[in-house]
């Protein structure tokens, strides 16, 4: 039970190089959505954990300085990514000596990260507010630790829950039609009705409206965003535009 002693005291942490705290409390809908996720056994096919095999350093040029030609020539001879810390420092020194300005970025690597399932490994803080924590052990479907980053559109999520094949053609995910009501179109069509492609649409005169459970589940999925650097899993986030 040493794990409990070590992990029991995990609290909100600070996002690296920022004053934001992490993780934010999930919204009410998202908290209820976790219960929909649990009740329907989503974790039977989806994990919520991104693995990482290590980190590398990358040297990024931020300014060419006074002698751009020399810097460009130098860059062509150097490897800039996949470096160890020491190698990156050496490369950075060389470029700085030639007059360029550089930053060293920390880049996590791993197969999951290559798949685009996350920018860093999952850490204890990602699950801080959750009960039950749904780590999952089989990836019959994709990992969902960052589904809120990958598919941030609530409507896409609802369409995908109602008819997975309508948005991802070859999906093997079962439809969760029972989280939706098919109802007659009233005097004015419901503003919440799904905008389904013809092949999946309800019969003429009917519309598909998500039940509260579907909304909550979608809110939960959107809240899955483990994409900020923290002390246990540092990385250099892309520059804010």
């Amino acid at each position: 039970m040493a794990a409990s002693i070590q992990l029991g005291s995990v609290t909100q942490t600070t996002v690296l190089n920022s004053s934001d705290v992490y993780p934010p409390q999930r919204t009410g809908d998202a908290t209820l959505g976790l219960q929909v996720y649990r009740a329907n056994g989503c974790a039977a096919c989806h994990t919520e954990q991104v693995r990482q095999e290590g980190v590398t350093c990358a040297v990024v040029l931020t300014g060419a300085g006074k002698n751009p030609q020399a810097v460009t020539n130098l860059l062509a001879t150097l490897t800039l990514t996949g470096l160890t810390k020491e190698a990156a420092d050496a490369v950075a020194d060389q470029i700085t000596a030639a007059g360029g300005k550089v930053e060293i970025h920390i880049v996590p690597v791993g197969t999951d990260i290559d798949h685009g399932w996350g920018v860093r490994r999952s850490v204890a803080e990602d699950y801080l507010h959750d009960y039950p924590v749904q780590l999952g052990s089989l990836r019959a479907g994709p990992d969902l630790a960052n589904i809120g980053v990958r598919a941030p559109d609530a409507n896409w999520q609802l369409l995908h829950l109602y008819a997975p094949q309508s948005v991802t053609g070859t999906s093997r995910m079962p439809s969760f039609k029972y989280l939706f009501t098919v109802q007659k179109v009233g005097a004015t069509p419901s503003p919440d009705a799904l905008n389904l492609p013809a092949a999946f649409a309800a019969p003429a005169g009917f519309e598909v409206v998500p039940k509260p459970e579907a909304r909550q589940l979608a809110a939960y999925l959107l809240s899955l965003r483990a994409n900020v650097p923290v002390y246990d899993a540092p990385f250099t986030p892309p520059a804010q535009p």
């Binding site: 039970m1 409990s4 029991g8 204890a124 803080e125 990602d126 699950y127 801080l128 924590v133 780590l135």
Partner: peptide
């Protein structure tokens, strides 16, 4: 540790 007095966060995964 999981149902009666649930431990916090990812420790649930460890116990499970």
């Amino acid at each position: 540790f999981l149902v009666a007095m649930p431990v916090r966060g990812v420790a649930q995964g460890v116990v499970n």
